[in-house]
Design a protein around this nucleic acid. Structure first.
Ligand code: SF4
Ligand code: SF4
Lengths: 153, 153
DNA sequence: GATTATTTGGACTCTTTTATCTTAATATAG
DNA sequence: CTATATTAAGATAAAAGAGTCCAAATAATC
């Protein structure tokens, strides 16, 4: 798998948050219900994103999680790096340690192009962009429901 | 990681075999030594590739493993499919079940492009091509050694 | 101050992947 | 036929990833 499950959940949750009114704290429980992700597992993932400064948390009643900066400044790459690290973009195709152009394997050239495509995609896509697209076309973030179910209270 | 470790080892071993005289059986032990991969683990992986008809095995003294068809007809994709399956090319970015253009997620369009780049790279690269490149430029298939160490007896 | 809603953090379990070990089967050579 | 070199197959073990559970901390409300 390209991204770990934790990372995928982190992306889905971040998209969910980006779809909410700016500044509003959303309880993890509500997110985990809507997104059909284990509450406790999601909690751990959001803690990582909070620690990285991408999200902000607040305890107690009316507490929850929100984005720490505007959704149009958060790239997918930010979330991937926070959860999966830079492994995807450094280590690669033949998995040899200490990779790079100084000591390449035969696949390096071709793989480097592909890897750049992945990197570009993650860097050039923001949460807001996807939320707008999802909202406009009612795309899905869960197995069944369309995008709209995320906005019902 | 894009590819599982089994898959990466399978690729390295296949490249090794493609670098050998056509028709020659190479014992797994020699491969595992040269490529610095656990013998027993590599054995299992090669069994899969043999079962898929990509490699051919022969028991007993003078036995070993060889490619079952010319290296210039074996795409990297063949090996990836045999070991990791089509998961990489079907399941994807947001990991939602039953994906596809009929029921897409907001990332679908962007991801589909990236995925096609990966697919293209794996489909348009043959073992022979990489072996020739590796040989010409003495690229590496192991942590330390250059390509040439693979050809010492 | 007590109760309740929430996040935090740690321990624990389950599953999959990765790796090792042991025995059997097969082929060759003497 | 025996010894040896090899792959095949299955059992087991270790490590990593995914998921669960519980107690503690914090904040709001009554
Ligand atoms: S040489 Fe390049 S393609 Fe090969 S493993 Fe290293 S970074 Fe990846
Ligand atoms: S909709 Fe497309 S990008 Fe999204 S998870 Fe499915 S196949 Fe992947």
């Amino acid at each position: 798998m390209l991204l770990s499950k934790s990372c995928v959940y982190g992306l889905r949750a971040s998209l969910y948050l980006a779809s909410k009114k700016e500044g509003e704290f959303i309880p993890i429980k509500r997110m985990s219900d809507k997104l059909e992700i284990s509450f406790h597992f999601l909690t751990k993932i959001l803690q990582q994103l909070t620690a990285e400064g991408i999200l902000e948390s607040f305890k107690g009643p009316n507490g929850g999680i929100r984005l720490n900066r505007p959704g149009n400044t958060v790239q997918l790459m930010d979330i991937v790096l926070a959860i999966d690290g830079e492994q995807l973009l450094t280590e690669c195709a033949l998995g040899l340690p200490g990779c790079g152009i100084k000591n390449p394997c035969p696949l390096h050239e071709k793989w480097a192009e592909t890897r750049d495509a992945i990197r570009g995609m993650l860097e050039n896509t923001t949460l807001t962009e996807l939320v707008e697209k999802g909202r406009a076309e009612n795309l899905r973030l869960t197995t069944d429901g369309g995008f709209d179910i995320l906005f019902q209270e």
